[in-house]
Design a protein around this nucleic acid. Sequence first.
DNA 1: CGAGGATACTCGTAAGTTTTTCGTAAGTCA
DNA 2: TGACTTACGAAAAACTTACGAGTATCCTCG
Lengths: 234, 234
Amino acid sequence: MTPKQKRVLDFILGFVEEHGFQPSQMEIAQGCGFESLGTVQHYLRSLERHGLLARQANAKRGLQLTANPPCLPFAKGATLTAGTIAKGGTVTPPPLGANVTFLELPLVGIVAAGKPVHAFELADAIEVPSAMAGPGNVVYEVRGDSMVEMGIMDGDYVAVHPQSVAENGQTVIAEVNGSITIKKYQRKGNIIQLLPANAAMSPIMVTEDDEFHIRGILVGSMRFYRKWTGKSST
Amino acid sequence: MTPKQKRVLDFILGFVEEHGFQPSQMEIAQGCGFESLGTVQHYLRSLERHGLLARQANAKRGLQLTANPPCLPFAKGATLTAGTIAKGGTVTPPPLGANVTFLELPLVGIVAAGKPVHAFELADAIEVPSAMAGPGNVVYEVRGDSMVEMGIMDGDYVAVHPQSVAENGQTVIAEVNGSITIKKYQRKGNIIQLLPANAAMSPIMVTEDDEFHIRGILVGSMRFYRKWTGKSST
DNA sequence: CGAGGATACTCGTAAGTTTTTCGTAAGTCA
DNA sequence: TGACTTACGAAAAACTTACGAGTATCCTCG
């Protein structure tokens, strides 16, 4: 982004902050010292291409800022109003004041995909699609790379359905000697193995001496990217 | 919201504050300097559409202000909104300032992570956490394995923020000769490359002869697992 | 180092749309 | 009936879009 572009963006931002509504193109021109609307037009298009701004066609003052999207604008527990997309594609605005509670799951621990880390509890919450929600479900943040071959990477969030038994091949979140880890479950007779999905790592053998129990199995995973890098984040 | 609309709203707000009851339409007209009731009528409808006001049909002084009124929706100018899917695949934004955060984004196509597949439009919607929502954002379903090393696998859903330019290293959803694909973006001078995250695949070179444009960049990804298998699904 | 080529930046004007406004007539409610 | 609220229709004003074109800057390459 060029300095000029940033200036225009900042102007819009400040204008909205001050007035409570979006500036018209003429106001932007005056505010930024442009003689021509064409110039404003140019910058608006430019910002739009960069994804920092969205415009509604032909709408007066129809600018919508997206710059540094307030990543988690709503505190946990906040209730928001939701809309539905009806079949056929029209957006049905929600009935006024119909508050829908967000689907949030508690974030209760950090899972080690590599070496087990000590289990600890967090008092936080993560929004999830309803398909990942369910009674008792919780979200873990993944630490380590042992599941990369299954597409679960360091920093990912996984939604977990609580249950204490598993079938072979399922991905489980399990506690082994006080440490919590995410692995594939494999059992033959009395021999339980926790298999990583990473060729560079070796399975964990669970013996009778180990304190072991399954916390739940994987029902979903999510990853958030920062706009300005290609990297995973949070 | 336009300045006039805001002024009417502010007037009503102030009137209620001062008198303890709602103004009649005539009082609004006088207070805001309108000659005609039709004008008031117009604004009332407008505010109602924006969800800032509710009216009881035919009730005298039957205006009801929405809770926590003008603060959130417009203040930031960055309302989180999703769009509608029109036939043919264009996404139309919802009415300005609609006071809603959508939990759903339109699912508009299937991205090829391996070989590009032909772009096609779907009329469906996918729930996402609000951190993945934003004006114009859409969701794609991933086909192919070219991004496995970044943890994006066949069947995953990716949330995309629309923009037509990208910086080196960002993961983009791009259209090349009518096919749509997800790759890492790399540009040196005039040479644009689309790099897969899979050692077994080779980059796509974009030449001047190719019809090429970026649809957006990656902001999030999700995967759903079936409970009774360990496999990815849907 | 200079030429050539992209990119950023700027102006103006002529459509094309939406908002804003007025007035008048009809419908409601107590 | 009186006091309000709804319902068009229509014209002016305010804004947004669509071109077309002309500088200035920076970078690359021979």
